[in-house]
Amino acid sequence: SLEPLFLIPLEPLMDVTSAIVFSFMFGICISWLKGQGKGETMYNFFSEFSLIITKLLNSLIIPGLPIFIFGNFVNLSYTGSVFSILAIFWKVFIVVISVQLILVSLFFIIAGIYTKKNPFTLIKNQIPGYVTAVGTQSSAATIPVNLEIAKKNGVSTQIREFIIPLCATIHLLGSIVTVVSCVTAVLLMYNMPVHFGMMAGFIAMLGVAMVAAPGAPGGGIMSALPFMTMVGIDPTGVLGNLLITLYLTQDSFGTAANVSGDNAIAVIMDKIYHKHILKKTN
């Protein structure tokens, strides 16, 4: 493969696993401090730190993604493997998108049955949110649209304003389907071992990693990379770069599946919440 013109030996301040634990720990502790009437300094610090990260994402990372993808495809073309890989992965993408749509529909059917609402109406209401996510490739940018959809679905204000923003940072439906499908395809392509026990452990770990996946293009695969060693893939090697490229080329559909599942969850949680309130009142 092609060698880079130069390398910048920049080590991350902390790996993804440490960052996830750090985020959980400080998030819970700051919430506890706020409940005690304290923690304003810590809360303001991390709120402003979040604005810095968002600025870096919008100004540097997201504009650089097309260049990164282009460079990887140039490298694949140089090695002569680009057409053999694309010949397989367009089929993988069809399977991925189909599975995502089936799971989203299943979510809304379950939500409709549980809440006694028409699931087809819920699915129809979600179309603007799905299209917005496909276009923006960002779960965070789709929050306002999803909030309006939740309102149209009859979800109460306190539930929709809590569930929708929270779930926008928990990439479980579309992202995990995509990551697992792409990883399985790569393992099979390169005749690497793949079995149920190995993939089950990997999927369970993704259930934790995706909770902290950033709401930016490629956030899901970047959160999953440190755990690729569980399936025998070097996250810093050629296969790791290949997975990033393949994930990014369809990330908009994964994001759309993520945010669509959020509204199904909001409908269910609203029913549970009001059922609990009614029971408590009686």
Results as ranks from 00 to 15, higher is better:
Q158H: 14
H171Q: 14
Y190G: 05
V177K: 10
G174M: 00
T169H: 13
T169D: 10
T184D: 11
V180Q: 06
I164Y: 13
V183R: 05
G154W: 01
V177R: 09
A185V: 00
A185W: 00
I163G: 12
L187E: 05
S156F: 06
A168D: 03
A168Q: 04
M192E: 08
M192I: 05
S181M: 10
S156P: 03
V177L: 15
I163C: 10
S156A: 13
M189W: 06
I163D: 10
A185L: 01
L173H: 07
C167T: 02
V155F: 14
S175M: 03
P165T: 13
P193D: 12
L188W: 08
I163E: 12
F162Q: 13
T169I: 10
L173R: 09
G174E: 00
A168W: 04
I163R: 10
V186E: 04
V183Q: 12
V155D: 03
Y190V: 06
H171E: 10
Q158L: 13
G174F: 00
I159E: 04
V180P: 02
V155G: 05
I159T: 10
H171S: 15
F162K: 14
I163S: 12
A185D: 01
C182V: 09
F162N: 13
E161H: 15
L166I: 03
I176L: 09
L173N: 08
V179Q: 05
P165W: 12
